[in-house]
């Protein structure tokens, strides 16, 4: 039940992340796939640049997954893969996959992990527009 956590500068293999959580003890696999959208607050986005503080991001991700295992003791397997570097529209930025015996906990655990990841994991996003770039959420 060691979680599969990684940060990569290569395209994310979604099928591999799903396969990583497959287990005969689970009747449900739930996945969140975050992709690059073409606008942000109505402003057209051309591409994204993700930067990661890898060692801390993996440490914090480990804490998030440990919290999920505490909240949902029936949680079987977890995989989280986050991309870094330059991403084009439609590219997969993050995959969270969980496996549980039944589906209700799989939705809840998956949502908890992606929501908490966004709050604590040390990854930054710079949006590129036609007329410049901006670090997301940096300013009030």
């Amino acid at each position: 039940m060691t979680p599969h956590l990684s940060i990569t500068d290569q395209p994310i293999a979604v099928a591999a992340a799903l396969a990583a959580v497959q287990t005969d003890a689970a009747g449900a696999v739930n996945a969140f796939i975050g992709t690059v959208r073409n606008q942000s607050g109505g402003r057209p986005v051309r591409r994204l640049h993700y930067e990661s503080y890898d060692s801390m991001a993996l440490t914090q991700l480990g804490h998030v997954v440990a919290q999920a295992y505490e909240k949902w003791p029936m949680l079987q397997e977890v995989a989280v893969v986050h991309r870094k570097g330059t991403l084009e529209l439609g590219d997969v930025a993050v995959v969270v996959a969980v496996a549980t015996p039944h589906r209700a906990e799989s939705f809840a655990a998956c949502q908890f992990i992606i929501d908490t990841l966004k709050q604590v994991v040390t990854i930054w996003k710079r949006e590129e527009y036609e007329d410049g770039t901006e670090w997301v959420a940096a300013h009030p």
Binding site: S55, M56, A57, V94, K118, Q119, T122, W124, A138
Partner: peptide, 12 residues
């Protein structure tokens, strides 16, 4: 210590 400034994160 390994010390770093952490501005608002924006993963996902």
């Amino acid at each position: 210590d390994e010390i770093a400034l952490i501005p608002p994160v924006a993963g996902g």
